[in-house]
């Protein structure tokens, strides 16, 4: 483990930038989001959850798949450096691993590459992930429900802890270790420095609200398909889709053409299962035409279907959906309701 003085962070970020484009929490208008930064001074260090999730670093809200014109089709050529993301809390780091499961899944098809998403892979596969310990979890946080925690080090390249006037850095993956080894200006962390981590971790965990045991959630929610609980939950929902847009793991998208017949581009855009048009077919038939069906789809996908396919819940407990919901639907309350529900 090495340490870098906060006053020297600019030098370290400059060093990272020699090889990578650095994305970090910063201000975008009145909101906070992970954006490409020019210098370390733009980084906001004390926000736990950016308003917008970091998924947009690798899976932007809109992305050109190709352009078409007289000369045929042209895919956008990526000229940028690989991506490094600084300041990810563990919830967000783990959301990227979930999205990676979807976008790099070959679905057991004979042509393996055909089913992987090249746009995601091009960016994510070469990335360097800095996972920063979360010193002050919010009242909306529930990462611990999923067996993770604010000081979790897994699924990252480099683990970062903000301690007093220094950042402690620990290489986790081989790639992370090798990268840190190249930065010669870092000092070795002392035993005293490392001891402070234990104290910070204990303090961070004390901020977390009471934990709900969700070990039965997958099985229980899977049995509630036909139960009236969905009407009860969806009664309040206005299908605005805000939860799906701020969600760090929602990955549904639309593909749409912009331009005319002879010249234009095909883009993909975030879409939402909360919208009626999401599944509406040209014939008028809509398998999820009513709100209750859409709300059920969202939560079944999060806590049942994804587990079925990938062995993990499609939720990190980041709490962004709790923060933005205009009618105060709290997913934690929903989970508790599901767990307490008596099947009729």
């Amino acid at each position: 483990m090495v340490k870098i003085k906060k006053t020297r962070l600019k030098d370290f970020i400059d060093f990272v930038q020699q090889e990578y484009d650095v994305f970090a929490p910063t201000e975008v208008g009145k909101k906070t989001a992970f954006k490409k930064i020019d210098s370390a001074f733009e980084i906001i260090h004390d926000i736990v959850n950016t308003d917008r999730s970091p998924k947009e670093v690798f899976f932007p809200q809109s992305e050109v798949l190709f352009e078409y014109g007289k000369d045929g089709l042209k895919t956008p050529e990526r000229k940028e450096k690989p991506i490094a993301v600084w300041g990810l809390r563990h919830c967000d780091t783990s959301s990227l691993t979930m999205l990676n499961k979807v976008f790099s899944d070959a679905h057991q098809m004979p042509d393996k590459d055909m089913f992987k998403d090249p746009y995601w892979k091009e960016k994510y596969d070469n990335s360097l992930i800095f996972n920063q310990a979360c010193n002050t979890p919010l009242s909306t946080c529930f990462c611990h429900w999923f067996g993770r925690g604010p000081f979790d080090k897994t699924s990252s390249d480099i683990f970062v802890v903000d301690v007093d006037d220094v950042f402690l850095l620990e290489g986790i993956s081989e790639k992370g270790k090798a990268f840190l080894a190249k930065y010669e200006k870092a000092e070795q962390a002392t035993k005293e420095d490392e001891a402070k981590i234990t104290e910070l971790k204990r303090k961070a965990e004390s901020f977390l609200a009471e934990k709900t045991d969700i070990s039965e959630l997958f099985e229980k929610i899977g049995k509630l398909w036909d139960e009236p609980i969905w009407e009860e939950i969806s009664g309040k929902c206005v299908n605005c889709g805000a939860c799906t847009f701020v969600c760090s793991t929602c990955h549904c998208f639309d593909v749409s053409d912009e331009g005319k017949k002879g010249k234009g581009k095909r883009i993909r855009l975030w879409d939402s299962c909360m919208f009626q048009l999401f599944t509406k077919e040209a014939s008028g038939h809509n398998p999820r035409g009513i709100s209750t069906q859409r709300v059920r789809q969202r939560f079944m996908h999060k806590y049942n279907y994804f587990m079925d396919n990938y062995g993990v819940h499609l939720c990190t407990g980041c709490g962004r959906c709790v923060q933005v919901c205009p009618v105060n639907l709290d997913v934690r309350e929903l989970i508790k309701k599901v767990l307490d529900y008596k099947i009729s």
């Binding site: 679905h107 089913f115 998403d117 549904c252 998208f253 879409d271 599944t279």
Partner: peptide, 12 residues
């Protein structure tokens, strides 16, 4: 069903 990506990513 309405299908967009055709490769199990877009979710619809």
């Amino acid at each position: 069903r309405r299908m967009k990506c055709g490769i199990g990513k877009c979710g619809r």
